[in-house]
Design a protein around this nucleic acid. Structure first.
Length: 733
DNA sequence: AGCACGCCGACT
DNA sequence: GTCGGCGTGCTC
């Protein structure tokens, strides 16, 4: 018998081993982790196939060191999905398979909790002596709490609750859980769902809930388009309740931002079942226990980011992917999968529904609605009395600006402040100024390692590159001509902040960007101050755009909307429109009506006008029409080959060789665009080039790549540089 | 990806 | 005379 295993290295084939000594051959199943010798190292691999001895030459096979799991960690459905992903993304099999596991399990950690107390408790079925827990304050607190419930819990129940402590510690400490959970064991989930009062759904919410819950037993993709504040979460919660009642598991995927705690709180308030969370801020062991709780079917809900996508679920019933347009669902290095696209394939393989939620759906998803692949459900109204904000362009051509603020804008801000309402200013550029220029000779401070200007940071008295780790002291004299006429050029949040101080000296303003919130807890402090009304003007970058509620903000300003209009990337208009709507969503969420002002030097711009006059749907329609006439995705399919090297020529020559390879092969109609220098041709000392492949038929593009990938590995140019393949790239950058 | 082997420049 | 640079090749 031979074990074919996937090893996490950049080689696209399996490696064969003989089973380890004293191993029960009956227990060998795909999905087990195996420890194997590999060259001079040992690696953790995943068992993919079991072959009989006569399929290959046994004589030069090594023997595996150990089988690490008693039962497979991946089911055949999981393996099927990972195999699909490996083909679709043309990525090495071992890398793909290992990405399904939390890092602790990738390193070979045991799936058994190793606490000695745990074993004593499970072995004896008795509650432990307190003195055993002197090193484990959390366990001790839990045990003391459970013992205090003596009148409702038997000793065996105390031990069982305690046994489960790792994953749902908080849920256990919650009295509601203990009360509703007389016979613990997740198999009886119904008793764990709290019958708290859910909010009364409005007509649209009800339609959405009913459409989905009436067909929970089959695959379907629902696009839930809900404007900001329309109550998408309530729809999710009511549907999840139905899925839990069917004794099934739910995976909720969220963008990589700090929204998880808020949603987690809301879920915990609603459901008294264990709820797992899975994101990069958790420790390795926290992620392992969350993953295992789902994998064993012990927990019914997981809230997680992209990396939670492959978490095994023996009782999967529903996948929800919120903010589906968000770019963070695409992995941007290594195995570059789209969690949204793979989640849909997963739902299809499991024959369960998937809900994609967004206030600003991606153009691909709207296209799929058009093609009747997805079912559109709309929540067009804000909950309660809140009215949608009014959007307006403010022409700043020929206006004398004070640090980027036009006279009319300053008057509008003053009026809003006079009404004791808050103002939110958005500028997606941190630092004081993006450029430092010599007024005397024209010298510009540039990064030595990147094709980028250094950004002036006045508070720190530094010039910093926003693309690598480079920084230097702010010079007093021009490096070229020694003149002292150095001028900061352009606008960053730091500069606007100082302008706000002298324009509105009576009013408190706060700046929220990566620099001002680096200190742990700083962001929360600022947000608390804002919500307590201690702040009049909120100024910030991208991080303001998502999720936060500022109920007293009635004026939202995008200081410079033009910078988003000139990108070479065809995704840029879509991104900008989504950003505008998301930022606008921060205004007037309570009773007060909100307005949004966008400063522009392009007041006639068709995209901006369509968005403002006719809304996001109309914008999306127009943008899709443009994509269609240009034969861009989703009307064609793309794959992007990137190369980087510290030598300019070798990065270029590699892609040139690839292009020649394709062109000399057969022309199956694949467009070969490039190689060209990346938009930022040099970054952190590395030269960057790219080659774009495009075809109207996905199938044809993938056939070409099937042939091309092994050929690339044979190219001698490939060994000198680093390269990667990105299927369905979302930024050509 | 690692980690070896192997053949050429600056050092005790 | 060695130490060590990274080009090339292999991993069941």
């Amino acid at each position: 018998m031979i074990l074919s295993v996937a090893i996490p290295i950049p080689l696209n084939h399996l490696f064969d081993y003989l089973p380890p000594d004293n191993c029960n051959l009956q227990q060998l199943k795909a999905g087990l982790r195996v420890k194997v010798p590999f060259g001079k190292q040992t690696k953790i691999a995943v068992l993919i196939k079991i072959k009989t001895g006569d399929e290959c030459d046994i004589s030069k096979l090594k023997q595996a060191e150990a089988i690490l799991d008693a039962e497979p960690l991946l089911s055949s459905k999981d393996i099927q999905l990972l195999n699909w992903a490996k083909y679709y993304y043309h990525h090495p099999i071992g890398d793909v398979f290992i990405s399904a596991f939390p890092t602790a399990l990738r390193k070979g950690k045991s799936t058994e909790p190793k606490s000695s107390t745990y074993f004593q408790l499970t072995a004896t079925g008795k509650a432990a002596d307190d003195s055993l827990l002197h090193n484990a304050p959390k366990q001790l607190a839990l045990l003391k709490f459970l013992k205090s419930q003596k009148n409702t819990l038997s000793n065996v129940e105390i031990a069982t609750h305690f046994k489960l402590w790792r994953a749902p510690l908080k849920a256990l400490i919650n009295k509601d859980y203990v009360r509703t959970c007389n016979a613990p064991g997740i198999s009886d989930q119904n008793s764990l769902i709290t019958q708290q009062t859910s909010l009364t759904a409005n007509a649209q919410q009800l339609t959405a809930i009913q459409s989905i819950t009436s067909q929970l037993d089959q695959f379907a993709v629902y696009l839930l388009e809900g404007v900001t504040g329309s109550g998408k979460t309530e729809v999710y919660l009511q549907i999840i309740e139905k899925v839990l009642a069917r004794n099934q598991q739910v995976l909720v995927l969220l963008p990589e931002i700090t929204l998880t705690p808020q949603l987690e709180a809301r879920f915990k308030q609603r459901f008294a079942v264990p709820i797992e969370t899975y994101h990069s801020q958790h420790s390795e062991s926290q992620r392992q226990s969350a993953w295992l709780a789902m994998q064993k079917g012990n927990s019914p809900i997981m809230l997680g980011t992209r990396s939670a996508l492959f978490t095994p679920m023996p009782k999967a019933g529903l996948i929800i992917l919120d903010e589906e347009h968000d770019a963070s669902f695409k992995q941007q290095e290594g195995f570059r999968f789209s969690a949204r696209d793979v989640a849909i394939v997963r739902a299809k393989m499991l024959n369960i529904p998937i809900i994609l939620g967004s206030a600003t759906p991606s153009l691909e998803s709207l296209y799929n609605v058009d093609k009747k692949r997805y079912q559109l459900l709309r929540l067009p109204h804000r909950a309660g009395n809140a009215t949608p904000p009014r959007l307006a362009l403010l022409d700043i051509r020929n206006q004398s600006l004070q640090e980027g603020l036009s006279p009319q804008l300053i008057r509008d801000i003053q009026r809003t402040l006079a009404k004791k309402e808050q103002v939110l200013l958005f500028l997606n550029r941190r630092g004081f100024a993006p450029t430092l220029i010599c007024h005397s000779c024209g010298w510009v401070a540039q990064c030595s390692r990147c094709d980028a200007n250094l950004v002036v940071h006045y508070q720190q008295q530094k010039l910093r590159c926003h693309h690598c780790a480079c920084e230097q002291a702010l010079p007093r004299q021009c490096i070229a001509c020694k003149s002292e006429e150095l001028k900061p050029l352009g606008l960053g949040t730091e500069r606007v902040e100082s302008a706000l101080h002298y324009l509105f000296p009576e009013h408190k303003s706060v700046r929220l960007d990566r620099d001002s919130t680096q200190r742990k807890g700083a962001l929360d402090q600022h947000l608390a101050a804002i919500n307590q009304g201690q702040v009049d003007i909120i100024l910030g970058t991208q991080m303001l755009a998502k999720g936060h509620h500022f109920p007293n903000v009635t004026l939202v300003v995008l200081l410079d909307v033009d910078s988003g209009l000139f990108s070479i990337d065809f995704h840029a208009p879509e991104r900008l429109a989504q950003l505008i709507i998301q930022v606008a969503g921060r205004a007037g969420r309570a009773e007060k009506k909100g307005r949004v002002i966008m400063q522009t030097r392009q007041p006639e711009h068709p995209l901006l006008n369509t968005l403002i006059l006719h809304g996001y749907q109309a914008f999306a329609k127009a943008a899709l029409a443009e994509r269609k006439s240009a034969e861009l995705p989703p009307y064609s399919y793309q794959a992007l080959l990137r190369s980087t090297s510290h030598e300019k020529d070798s990065a270029f020559e590699f892609l040139l060789a690839v292009a020649e390879l394709i062109n000399s092969h057969t022309s199956n109609g694949t467009l070969v665009l490039g190689p060209v220098a990346a938009p930022m041709a040099k970054r952190a000392g590395q030269f960057r080039y790219q080659l774009l492949l495009q075809h109207k038929k996905r199938k044809q593009l993938h056939l070409l790549l099937n042939w091309l990938m092994p050929e690339i590995l044979k190219l001698k140019q490939a060994r000198k540089i680093r390269w990667s393949l990105d299927i369905d790239p979302i930024d050509l950058y």
